[in-house]
Amino acid sequence: MSHHIVAVKNLRHVYPDGTTALRDVSFRIHHGESVAIIGANGAGKSTLLLHLNGYLVPTSGEIQIGDFPLTKGTLPQIRRTVGMVFQEPDDQLFMPTVYDDVAFGPLNLGLTGDDLDRCVIEALERVGARHLVEKAPYHLSGGEKRRVAIATVLSMSPDILVLDEPTNGLDPYSRRQLIALLKEFRHTRIFTSHDLDMVLDLCERTIVLKDGEVRADGPTLEIFQDEELLEECRLEKPLSLQGCPVCGGRR
């Protein structure tokens, strides 16, 4: 299907206290693309993400998800289409057991009985967490929590996945596993992260935000080789690109 696009046009957001978090953001993400949104702290990444499923309402500008413009009327449809995985899995996993948590979305969509069971188990199997089904979220490790958090969204079969800092706070092994998992997905994917090596691994395209505006938008490799741009946006070349003779790294 070709309509799983995310289009943001002249998005501007001013918080009630007067802070302008987003000045003028426009981009268009196509079906099946994997895109990273990077930028320094306070560049507006989180604010932007919260617009994508309608939690925040734009001060001005437009957002289109799939075939629908984001309005109050299309909100339920859009929240079903956009699966949002939050930065802190403890906020995402709020039910007493993993099962209940993964079932929360489908239940709200009206699934019951065997359909619900199947949906939950499928989602957990997809992230390799089938064995955790009856566990309580606070007994899970950091990596397990991430996987389950992703399953809670997958169970609603979204078309677009939005992940906020997915590798934050994971040990190298869990991080590696998670990246491998995310690589398998065929959804349209949008990440925010400070883990630029992950971005290099997962995303062919990167959008750089600076002070609430799109500073750069292009192929990931190109952006990471533009040292001036990186420095200006308080970013750094991914470690895997540093000191590499082929790509011309200096350090």
């Binding site: 919260l50 499923n53 939690y55 339920p76 929240r79 079903r80 956009v82 699966g83 949002m84 939050f86 802190e88 403890d90 906020d91 995402q92 709020f94 209940d100 079932a103 929360f104 979305g105 239940l107 709200n108 969509l109 019951t112 619900l116 809670t152 969204v153 609603m156």
Partner: peptide, 22 residues
């Protein structure tokens, strides 16, 4: 703040005010 984030996560998964319990 955490409560606000949790509420956000609930809305993101189609929460409409009524809890469905299996």
């Amino acid at each position: 703040q955490r409560a606000e984030r949790i509420h956000m996560a609930m809305l993101a998964r189609g929460f409409t005010g009524a809890f469905q319990v299996r």
